[in-house]
């Protein structure tokens, strides 16, 4: 459904744009309907930039992103957003603090459903609030600061559901939430796929990515270093970077092993190519890497 093909984002920096900064390079993968793909990476890996490019909030420098076969750069924005929506990291900054929280619904009505009658629209809102397990009486008519992070985040998912979306970009949507509410939002995301939605779940937290997704894409320094079925990537990581990440995740079942962390800081992936090590499991080839310190 959504396909990224050798996507790159290069920023011009410095005076007169003389130097360039490659934030994302050669990122390609596909997300099908009814599938959650987690995009895992640390800060600066370019994972959020990929999410923003899919949402058309940041322009693609090279390569293409296609939705149902059409390049999203050529699609009319408004029509595209009817089926592709996003939810972001910080629920508090997603709401204009001056207005009530349910204004995000009104915006959708004004832009997409101007002719829908009020009672019908209210019923639709109630239905989508029900989908995200929110009680209308508790959330409607409130200011953002009167609601909890979990409620705000679910309101945003409800907002996306008002449009009949086919695809959702969820960019670090649980990282500002407490553990006890985080899992509910994750479950909700996983439920969406049973409705046939495709979800790109962008996160830095491996255990969360592992929990909800069928397939995993690991990014480092703007490059995809490994991708494949979540099972495979997590149990049999082939790229040293993935292995290092996995060994650093604090877990409740095991303590960190005592071997000192292997310093690994690949600065330049240069021309290293993705190689299929087993069907559907791709790893960026290592031999040509220049490893620093």
């Amino acid at each position: 459904m959504l396909k990224l093909d050798a996507v790159a984002k290069i920023y011009k920096v410095g005076a007169f744009g003389g130097r360039t900064l490659t934030a994302v390079d050669d990122v390609g993968f596909e997300i099908r309907s009814g599938e959650v793909v987690s995009l895992i990476g640390e800060s600066g890996s370019g994972k959020s930039t990929v999410g923003r490019m899919v949402l058309g909030l940041t322009a693609v420098t090279r390569g293409s992103i296609t939705y149902d076969g059409a390049d999203i750069a050529t699609l009319p924005r408004k029509a595209y957003y009817r089926s592709v929506q996003g939810v972001f990291q910080d629920p508090f900054s997603c709401y204009n603090p001056v207005f009530k929280a349910d204004r995000v619904f009104r915006m959708i009505k004004e832009e997409y459903f101007p002719r829908v009658a009020a009672p019908e629209w209210d019923a639709k809102i109630e239905e989508s609030l029900d989908d995200v397990r929110l009680n209308p009486a508790q959330v409607l008519g409130k200011y953002p600061h009167q609601l909890s992070g979990g409620q705000l985040q679910r309101l945003l998912i409800a907002r996306a559901l008002l449009l009949d979306i086919k695809f959702l970009v969820a960019d670090e949507i649980t990282s500002m939430l407490d553990a006890s509410t985080r899992i509910d939002v994750l479950n909700l995301l996983a439920d969406l796929k049973s409705r046939g939605l495709g979800v790109l779940f962008v996160t830095h937290d491996l255990s969360l990515g592992n929990y909800v997704s069928e397939r995993t894409v690991v990014m480092h320094r703007g490059h995809v270093v490994e991708m494949g079925l979540t099972d495979k990537v997590f149990t049999d990581p082939r790229h040293p970077y993935t292995a290092k990440l996995l060994s650093s995740v604090p877990q409740l079942t095991t303590k960190w092993d005592d071997t000192p962390a292997v310093p690994l800081d690949i600065l330049d992936y240069g021309a290293a190519a993705l190689v299929e090590v087993e069907p559907g499991h791709l790893v960026r080839q290592e031999q040509s890497l220049r490893s620093v310190n």
Binding site: K78, Y81, G86, F88
Partner: peptide, 8 residues
């Protein structure tokens, strides 16, 4: 960004 995603 959210307003942009709402087609505003």
């Amino acid at each position: 960004d959210l307003a942009r995603l709402s087609g505003v």
